[in-house]
């Protein structure tokens, strides 16, 4: 609820201005980001576990990162 309220408030605040200045692209971008943000927020608030985008990155990078760590550690000993 709170999230939706915030989203509406932001829209009320921003949209009329964009309409007035005829900023179509801005509007599309705006609504995309806002939609994304409020969806994630709502899901998060309602206890839906969102897969952490970090974990994907970790899968890719951890070999590199840990490799570097180990390199330093081993040489250090």
């Amino acid at each position: 609820m709170g999230v939706l309220l915030v989203a509406t408030l932001i829209s009320i605040y921003e949209i009329p201005k964009m309409k007035k200045q005829n900023m179509k692209r801005d509007f599309i971008l705006f609504s995309c980001v806002l939609f994304l943000a409020s969806t994630i927020a709502t899901l998060h608030v309602n206890g839906v576990t969102i897969s952490n985008p970090i974990s994907g990155l970790r899968a890719i990078f951890s070999p590199i990162g840990l490799g570097i760590e180990n390199f330093f550690m081993e040489k250090g000993q």
Partner: peptide, 27 residues
């Protein structure tokens, strides 16, 4: 906003800020 060739970056500050606030504790 440059990427989509929008006129002004200001309108997306609030939504993107919201996204950050939401994502930071999730990430």
């Amino acid at each position: 906003s440059d990427f989509v060739k929008a006129k002004d970056y200001r309108p997306i500050t609030l939504p993107l800020g919201m996204l950050l606030v939401v994502m930071s504790p999730i990430m």
